Computed example of a mutant assay.
Amino acid sequence: MSDDPGDASDLTHTTAEGNAQMVDVGAKPDSARRAVARGTIHLQESTVAAIADDGIEKGDVLATARIAAIRAVKHTWETIPLCHQIPITNVETEFTLADDRVTLTVAVETTGKTGCEMEALQGVTTGLDTVWDMTKAAEKDEDGQYPTTAIEDVRVLEKEKTAEES
Rank of each mutant, 00 (worst) to 15 (best):
R71F: 12
V73N: 10
V73D: 11
K74G: 13
H75T: 13
H75C: 12
T76Y: 10
W77M: 00
W77I: 05
W77P: 01
E78D: 14
I80R: 03
P81K: 10
C83A: 09
C83K: 03
C83Y: 02
H84F: 01
H84R: 01
Q85S: 06
I86M: 10
P87N: 13
P87D: 14
P87E: 15
I88L: 07
T89I: 06
V91C: 06
V91I: 07
V91E: 09
E92L: 09
E92H: 13
E92V: 06
E92K: 12
T93L: 00
E94F: 03
E94S: 13
F95W: 15
T96E: 15
L97D: 12
D100F: 03
D100M: 07
R101E: 14
R101C: 13
V102D: 00
V102Q: 04
V102W: 01
T103S: 08
L104D: 11
L104Q: 10
T105S: 07
T105M: 02
T105Y: 03
V106C: 03
V106R: 09
V106T: 11
A107D: 07
V108I: 06
E109V: 02
T110A: 05
C116W: 08
C116I: 03
C116V: 14
E119M: 06
A120D: 04
A120W: 00
A120K: 01
L121V: 08
L121G: 03
T125E: 13
T126G: 01
G127P: 06
G127D: 08
L128M: 06
L128H: 04
T130A: 00
T130Q: 00
T130I: 04
W132L: 15
D133P: 00
D133I: 04
M134V: 09
K136G: 09
A138W: 12
A138T: 12
K140I: 13
K140A: 14
D143E: 13
D143C: 03
G144L: 09
Q145G: 11
Y146W: 12
T149G: 05
T149R: 05
D153F: 01
D153N: 11
D153P: 02
V154Q: 05
R155H: 09
R155S: 09
L157C: 02
E158Y: 00
E158N: 11
K161P: 04
K161Q: 13
K161L: 01
E165M: 05
E165I: 08
E165S: 12
